[in-house]
Amino acid sequence: MDPFVVLVLCLSCLLLLSIWRQSSGRGKLPPGPTPLPVIGNILQIDIKDVSKSLTNLSKIYGPVFTLYFGLERMVVLHGYEVVKEALIDLGEEFSGRGHFPLAERANRGFGIVFSNGKRWKEIRRFSLMTLRNFGMGKRSIEDRVQEEARCLVEELRKTKASPCDPTFILGCAPCNVICSIIFQKRFDYKDQQFLNLMEKLNENIRIVSTPWIQICNNFPTIIDYFPGTHNKLLKNLAFMESDILEKVKEHQESMDINNPRDFIDCFLIKMEKEKQNQQSEFTIENLVITAADLLGAGTETTSTTLRYALLLLLKHPEVTAKVQEEIERVIGRNRSPCMQDRGHMPYTDAVVHEVQRYIDLIPTSLPHAVTCDVKFRNYLIPKGTTILTSLTSVLHDNKEFPNPEMFDPRHFLDEGGNFKKSNYFMPFSAGKRICVGEGLARMELFLFLTFILQNFNLKSLIDPKDLDTTPVVNGFASVPPFYQLCFIPV
């Protein structure tokens, strides 16, 4: 058959498939802009700032609406009420993970971030239990974070109060905490193996944040037939998995079943207990991918939040002064901060919360999916439909947070200066898919920041009023603009 005829037939089939998918069930789905064949609503979305586009569309179609990214149908949730109703009140029905062709290629359905069903539930339950087990290797997770915080302070001392970009050092600290939990080992910041790991993690975040990856996920045929950065992403992930597998083999040879040292040991012990169960989800494949998931999810998000926190503290020296006064009063100079201190430091706690609220790190979270046909607000959402959640619409709700575009710790303080919780605080998402490392991340943010401010004054290279804190939105995360500062020993 003539190649031209084959091409026309293929394009015609794709067009018909697109029209059929977009028209099927439209009477039951939430409203939304009319999609174009094949490309859907992509032309109506700013790929570099999806969150802003969703906010604009919500003003037209309401808090629940339908979009098509290519052939992929998505239902968008915008605003606290619908997000709570879906992710919390109907948590089980909305607990699936959205379709990610690239991740599915890399992870093969294993791990904790992109798995679904029984596998996801069992691996998540085990990971939560293990991360909360403060007795691994007779050292609590808090001990590990405190140790890394001391190392971080010593690295900052080496800058000798000269101007520096904190990106690298602030990236090393949370990565080392995860390494300590998974591998029972922290690395020197100049260790070549550690630097290679950091390089792969950072490069992957840069790649994932590009519009090209959005295109690959919406048109998965590209993955096999086109060159691009997605190939580098898959190569980096394969490198990390190979490295983790080597460490798993080392653990198998040296493990003491009665004295687990780290996450890998705990997983291997669980595998041993379930070795007679042919349906067990505790396999080497799941261990390797879960460890890679924890490394990827637990490094860049925390380091970016820390980097943004220091920029905001530079911009608002009056806030920094209040935090340091609270540190001096509650902790002093002669001991290290600990998590028990947080309950006695409402202002510092409010500042950490406000940093996370203000920066809105992951504006749309990772997409969910419905696990069955769901009736939601008089609409029928078919099983498997991807759910896109606007966390921006919750964290920047102007009824809950007056002047949401302003950095103001009073958003989390009552009139008496006591810490005030808010149900709208969802930087880790909400419901059954809430970030498994939430507790660890909150511990790291509090301890790293208090250790830094206990030991250093922060000095800006320019007038604080002239510092730009506008986030650089890159399609996946909101990151701070480049800046330098000086760490002046107190």
Rank of each mutant, 00 (worst) to 15 (best):
L312H: 05
L268Y: 03
V113K: 12
Y379Q: 02
F282L: 07
F425R: 01
V352K: 01
N217G: 14
R125I: 07
Q214I: 11
P404D: 04
T130P: 04
N217D: 06
C172V: 08
D468I: 15
E281D: 08
L388I: 13
E274M: 10
K421R: 14
S95R: 05
V473S: 15
P337N: 01
T386M: 13
I223C: 14
T302Q: 06
I223R: 08
I207K: 05
L15M: 13
R21W: 11
E405L: 13
L233N: 03
I112T: 05
R150D: 08
E281R: 06
V75E: 00
I215G: 05
A149V: 03
M129F: 13
I213G: 11
T301M: 08
E72W: 06
G437K: 01
N204K: 03
I88N: 11
V5C: 13
R433N: 03
G384S: 06
C338I: 10
S254I: 07
L90F: 14
N56D: 13
T371Q: 11
R157C: 10
E274G: 08
V374D: 00
R342Y: 11
D46G: 13
A103C: 10
I488V: 14
L29I: 10
Q184M: 13
F134G: 13
K270C: 09
G98I: 05
F451N: 13
I169T: 09
H78E: 03
P35A: 10
I362E: 05
P35Q: 05
F401A: 00
I257Q: 10
T299S: 14
S254M: 07
V8E: 04
L9G: 12
S393A: 06
H230Q: 09
G439V: 09
T389M: 15
I362N: 10
S115C: 06
P260E: 06
T389C: 15
K432R: 15
L9S: 12
I178S: 05
C172S: 15
I215Y: 12
F183N: 07
N107L: 10
S140V: 06
L391C: 03
D89C: 08
V8G: 13
L131N: 03
Y68C: 08
D262N: 06
L11V: 12
Q340G: 14
V323S: 06
S393F: 01
